[in-house]
């Protein structure tokens, strides 16, 4: 579903991502695990066509991120790290705006919004301006905005960052539900616990390089826990 092949990304003389390879299968939650500045966000931005790879190829659902960027975007829902909403618009207005930008038929858009609001327990906040919402509800609106066009692939960049325990749990449950609905998810985080809980496979990324790619199941067998595996991999790289 997502194929990242020999991809590197340069910003001037700085190599943010260094020759990485990742394959994400349909219906899988794939975690990108790494410290801040490891290259997770840059990788996700390249998959979502915000950035173009300096080297290598990325395909999403068979579409190349360079030559078929608009088709790639039709197939993904991207939740960036920063919530970024229009404070002066209501939750419903924001979701509708992004629905229209994602080519949803205007006659069906209100029903779709109601569906998403229900799914994310946002119904009572639908007509409230985003600037007045709590951090957790803002994140839910950002998720609704990202998935309103029902793409097969979701890209979540640290979706629980800055959220309280209750809101984090709601987001994690929603991600699991997405997997149950058959979505493919590229999920980045620096939290070992949530990655271990929801991901099927992970890649440990450090200084732009992939240090390890494996299934959670196998990692547990080999190292006991994801945290131990991560520390071993990063320490090994540093030494």
């Amino acid at each position: 579903m997502i194929s990242i092949q020999n991809v590197s990304k340069w910003f001037g003389k700085f190599k943010a991502v260094d020759n990485i390879n990742i394959e994400v299968e349909k219906g899988e939650i794939f975690g990108l695990l790494g410290l801040n500045g490891a290259g997770k966000t840059t990788t996700q931005r390249m998959v979502s066509t915000v950035f173009q790879p300096s080297e290598g190829n990325i395909t999403v659902n068979g579409f190349n991120s360079k030559s078929d960027s608009s088709k790639v975007r039709r197939n993904i829902g991207f939740l960036p790290t920063e919530v970024g909403l229009y404070d002066r618009l209501t939750a419903r207005e924001v979701i509708k705006y992004f629905g229209i930008l994602n080519d949803i038929d205007e006659s069906k858009i209100d029903d779709k919004i109601d569906e998403v609001l229900e799914k994310l327990s946002l119904v009572e906040y639908a007509n409230r301006r985003c600037g007045k919402l709590s951090r957790g509800n803002k994140q839910k609106v950002a998720i609704a905005r990202a998935i309103i066009h029902e793409p097969p692939v979701f890209i979540f960049d640290e979706p629980t960052s800055g959220l309280d325990v209750i809101s984090s749990r709601a987001v994690l449950d929603f991600v699991k539900q997405c997997k149950d609905d058959g979505r493919t998810i590229l999920y980045s985080s620096h939290s070992m616990y949530e990655t271990e809980e929801i991901c099927d496979k992970i890649a440990v990324i450090h200084d732009g390089k992939i240090l390890m790619t494996d299934s959670i199941e196998h990692i547990r067998k080999e190292h006991g826990s994801l945290e131990k595996a991560f520390i071993t991999a990063v320490k090994g790289e540093r030494s």
């Binding site: 931005r45 066509t49 608009s70 975007r73 993904i76 991207f78 920063e82 970024g84 930008l101 994602n102």
Partner: peptide
């Protein structure tokens, strides 16, 4: 960023 990843 959210705008740039829409189909538009």
């Amino acid at each position: 960023e959210a705008l740039l990843v829409t189909s538009t």
